[in-house]
Every structure is written in structure tokens, then in C-alpha cells.
Amino acid sequence: MNSQSSMGSYVEPNKEFDRDMNYIPDRITRDGRDGWPVEPGRYRLIVAKACPWANRAIIVRRLLGLEDVISIGYCGPTHDARSWTFDLDPGGRDPVLGIERLQEAYFKRFPDYPRGITVPAMVDVPTGQVVTNDFPWITHDLATEWTEHHREGAPDLWPADVRDEMDDVMKRIFTEINNGVYRCGFAGTQEAYDSAYERLWAAMDWLEERLADRRYLMGDSITEADVRLFTTLARFDAVYHGHFKCNRQKLTEMPVLWAYARDLFQTPGFGETIDFDQIKQHYYVVQTDINPTQIVPQGPDPEVWLTPHGREALGGRPFGDGTPPSSER
């Protein structure tokens, strides 16, 4: 998508990568204070399996068992400068919203919407209008505002006893890793790239140490922090190592992080949401300023994600007092 990324952010020549974090701030809440009350069947979550930010929402929806409460629509992995599109659906239209481009839902509410058309997005089905694309709050609210509709045995992804530390951990993961790989890939100067590279690998080393003696980021059970880290790790060797020049090491060469990532991949709710073909199609085809030939690499072999990880030796209960989600739906 030339100088645009799927998040509506950009890099200018001779400058550092700058992510536009101005999203539609509305939230879907129990009390409906923004005009959007929690209501089963009313909203449709629009995602793309290619996008790490949308991938978070897919995982959280699965873990919490909200499949019958919030419907989901999948955009294809590639798009043009205008919008994500529903080219995976028959006739190229979302079967519920009846639209070809996610842009239509944005424009239905904001006719002159000036920013990137991003996923994930929550859409109000009765009006066809976008509600919010504020991705950190979307998953937070699925976990905290929709509790009456969670499945029996749904995990607590925001445990109160670690929430303050978890906020700090997630902030560092976002700035240094989730966004850090983009800062490397879209650096406009050698100096900007070198700085981004050093920051990324300092954080990767921090995680390698943090996870050496604890199974998950916050201890014995999975939290939203793990979801947020996982979607970047899942894309690391397939995309970020080469395409974004994050190439000090492959993930497979970091013993602790690689075992941790496989542990999550093999946990119900995680691995089945990953589509490596769509991930590679998105980055290598859409981001022509980085990959002008649009050639998509064949590797790496995804079967390595299913090899034994040995993290069970650290103990822990992946879902805390809860249970795994049911088989893929």
C-alpha cells in the first residue's frame, strides 16, 4: 500500500516511523455510556487474519466464547490504498453487512473519515455504521464489559492482582515489540533503523529473561499480555525477520521465546487463528515500498510450530480456574 500501512500509519523519507494512534474512541459498554450498549447479536467484529492487531481480537473472542454473541467477518489479506475488502466472501461482499469494502461502514458514520480504514473494527449491524476501531479497547472491553455473555470457564484475561504490573508490561511490549518491528521495517534513515533495531532487541532479550522461569508473562496463567505478544511472535520469522530487517536472530534461535511461542500456538484459541499464507500475502504484496516485486516467500515451514516445547515443566494453569475453549467453530 505504498507509504501507507494497514494501520493508517506511514513513514516519510528521512524520518522515523510514526503510527497514527487516533482511533474512533467510542466503546461498547455495559452501561452504554457512549451510546453503544452491550447487546448480543447487535455487533459484528471485522478482522483480517493477516493483521496482528486484528488477530488479538480473534483470539480473545475465541478464549471468552463470544462466537454466538458477536459475529465475525473476515477481510482478505491484501487491499489497496482505499480499504480492506471482503474478497474472501462469495461475490466479494460481507454476507451480513452486504458491503464490499470496510470503508463503507466507516463512511456511513463519518462521510469524510480522514484516517486509515483499519481492522479490527466493531460495526453496528442494524445501521451498518462503524462503532470503533480502537483495537486496545476492543479486546479490553470484550474481557471486562461482556462478562455476562462469556462462556462457562472463560479465563480472566485481566486479573486484578497483577493489573498494574500488566499495564507496564503491555506498554513495553507495544512500544518496543508490537510497534518496534514496524519501526524497524519502515525506518526512513539508517540512523532511525539502527535505533529501532537496538530498542527491539533490548526488549526481546528482556522477554527471554522474564520468561525463563515463568510460563506466561504474568505468571502461571494466560492474560491479555500474552495475547498481545503472541501475535507479533507468530509473524516474526515469516515476516519481520526478513521483510522488516529484524534479523539479529530468528525467533527459532531464541530458546525461551521460541518455546513460549510454541506453547501458546499449541494452546486452544491461539494456533488455529494463525494463517501464515494470509500473513505473508499481506505484508509482501501490500507493502510495495518495502517489497516492490511483491514476491511472497515460500518459507518458513509452519510445521515447526507443532514441535514439543517443554514449557509444561514450569507448571502453571493456562486458563487459570477456567477451561479451554471448545474445538474450533
Results as ranks from 00 to 15, higher is better:
M1S: 14
M1V: 13
G8T: 09
N14D: 14
D18A: 12
M21A: 09
N22E: 09
I24K: 01
I24Q: 03
R27C: 08
I28A: 11
T29S: 15
D34F: 15
W36G: 02
C51R: 05
C51T: 06
C51S: 15
P52V: 01
W53S: 06
A54S: 15
N55Q: 12
R56I: 02
I59Y: 07
P90R: 13
G98H: 12
I99C: 07
E100C: 06
Y106Q: 04
F107G: 00
R109L: 10
R115Q: 07
G116F: 07
G116Q: 05
A121W: 03
A121Q: 01
M122C: 07
V125S: 09
N133T: 15
D134F: 15
F135Q: 05
W137I: 01
I138N: 13
A143E: 14
E145N: 07
H150T: 10
D156W: 03
L157C: 09
V162I: 12
M166T: 13
V169T: 14
I173V: 15
T175Q: 07
I177S: 10
C184R: 04
C184P: 14
G185N: 10
G185T: 11
A187E: 08
G188N: 03
E191T: 14
E191W: 10
A192N: 10
Y193P: 00
E198H: 09
M204H: 00
D205E: 11
A212M: 01
D220L: 07
D220N: 14
D220M: 09
F230M: 06
V239L: 02
Y240C: 06
H241Q: 08
C246Q: 02
C246P: 04
N247V: 04
R248H: 12
E253M: 12
P255W: 00
L257E: 08
W258G: 06
A259Q: 11
Y260K: 04
R262F: 06
Q266W: 06
T267D: 03
G271Q: 04
I274H: 07
D275P: 02
I279N: 03
Q281I: 04
H282E: 11
Y284A: 09
V285D: 04
N291P: 12
N291Y: 12
T293S: 15
V296A: 11
Q298S: 14
P300N: 13
V304I: 14
W305A: 08
L306Y: 13
P308E: 00
H309S: 10
R311I: 02
A313D: 05
L314T: 11
R317C: 06
P318I: 04
F319S: 10
F319N: 04
D321S: 14
T323P: 00
P324Y: 06
S327W: 01
E328C: 01
E328Q: 07
